[in-house]
Simulated assay, not measured.
Amino acid sequence: MSAQNSAGIQTLLDAEREASKIVQKAREYRTKRVREARDEAKKEVDAYRKKKEEEFKKFEAEHTQGNKQAEDEANREADAKIEEIQAAGKKSQSKVVDDLLKAVLEVKPVPPSAA
Score class of each variant (00 low, 15 high):
Met1Phe: 07
Ser2Val: 09
Asn5Phe: 05
Asn5Glu: 11
Gln10Ser: 15
Thr11Pro: 01
Leu12Glu: 12
Leu13Lys: 12
Asp14Pro: 01
Ala15His: 06
Arg17Asn: 06
Ala19Ser: 13
Lys25Ile: 11
Lys25Cys: 09
Ala26Met: 08
Ala26Gln: 13
Ala26Trp: 09
Arg27Tyr: 07
Arg30Cys: 05
Thr31Ile: 12
Lys32Trp: 08
Arg38Asp: 05
Glu40Leu: 08
Glu40Asn: 15
Ala41Ile: 02
Lys42Gln: 04
Lys42Leu: 01
Glu44Trp: 09
Asp46Gly: 08
Lys50Ile: 11
Glu53His: 05
Phe59Ser: 03
Glu60Thr: 09
Glu62Arg: 08
Glu62Asn: 10
His63Gly: 00
Thr64Gln: 02
Gln65Thr: 02
Lys68Glu: 00
Ala70Gln: 01
Asn75Phe: 02
Ala78Thr: 05
Ala78Phe: 08
Asp79Ala: 08
Ala80Ile: 13
Lys81Met: 08
Glu83Ser: 06
Glu84Pro: 01
Glu84Phe: 09
Glu84Met: 07
Ala88Ile: 07
Lys90Asp: 12
Ser92Ala: 06
Ser92Lys: 13
Lys95Thr: 15
Val96Asp: 07
Leu100Arg: 13
Leu100Phe: 12
Leu101Gln: 12
Lys102Tyr: 11
Ala103Asp: 03
Ala103Phe: 03
Glu106His: 04
Val107Glu: 06
Pro109Ala: 07
Val110Glu: 09
Val110Gln: 12
Pro111Ile: 00
Ala114His: 10
Ala114Asp: 15
Ala115Asp: 13
